[in-house]
């Protein structure tokens, strides 16, 4: 009977003392690639026709432009991670004139890294014209775009200033990210 213990005890203790983590390969985590797609609102505005007149001087403003910081692009992880961006610009034109709209991405005040421009067709106060622009940006332009830290919009009334109504814009972006484990 006592001999039994010399077989039993090692049998009990051996697994505890020599436990193994095997059949694993931690290096493969470097091969993990995730590709989230993130939808976010961007800029929006409504320009009433009277905004084309300077309220202080009373002089016409032939072109309206504005700019905002977008620091979320100005980040090394973001710049490396974004492989494609789809920008959607939706317009409702309640005025009777066409507009040339330019969307530009800038690094600093003047360095345009990417821009797109298009015509928004005329509508009417009672019958607005909807216009949708989809701008897909992939390599290599995406690398330029993601160098930007500002986004600017320029609205240029074509031919004459609007007499009434407004121009509405809504926008969003779908960012396609690629993040790997390396």
């Amino acid at each position: 009977m006592y001999r039994f213990i010399w077989y039993l005890l090692p049998g009990l203790l051996f697994p505890l003392l020599t436990s193994c983590v095997k059949d694993t390969d931690f290096d493969q985590l470097q091969e993990v690639v995730i590709t989230p797609e993130v939808d976010v609102n961007l800029l929006f505005f409504e320009i009433n026709s009277n905004e084309f007149v300077d309220p202080v001087t009373g002089l016409p403003r032939m072109v309206l432009s504005d700019v905002t910081d977008i620091p979320f692009l100005d980040d090394s992880d973001t710049q490396e991670g974004i492989i494609r961006a789809d920008f959607l610009y939706e317009f409702d034109n309640f005025t009777s004139i066409d507009y040339q709209v330019t969307i530009s991405f800038r690094r600093g005040a003047d360095n345009v890294t990417y821009s797109v421009d298009f015509i928004v067709p005329a509508g009417a106060v009672a019958n607005p014209q909807s216009h949708i622009v989809l701008d897909q940006v992939e390599a290599p332009q995406i690398y330029d775009l993601t160098q930007a830290n500002k986004m600017a919009v320029t609205v240029d009334p074509l031919g004459q200033l609007p007499a009434g109504g407004s121009l509405v814009m809504r926008s969003k972006a779908t960012f396609y990210l690629l993040i790997n484990g390396q």
Partner: peptide, 17 residues
């Protein structure tokens, strides 16, 4: 969260948005 709304203010020379 709606995003960023632009106002297109009339800026004098040297004014920042």
């Amino acid at each position: 969260v709606e995003g960023i709304e632009l106002d297109f203010p009339a800026l004098a020379s040297g004014q920042s948005p």
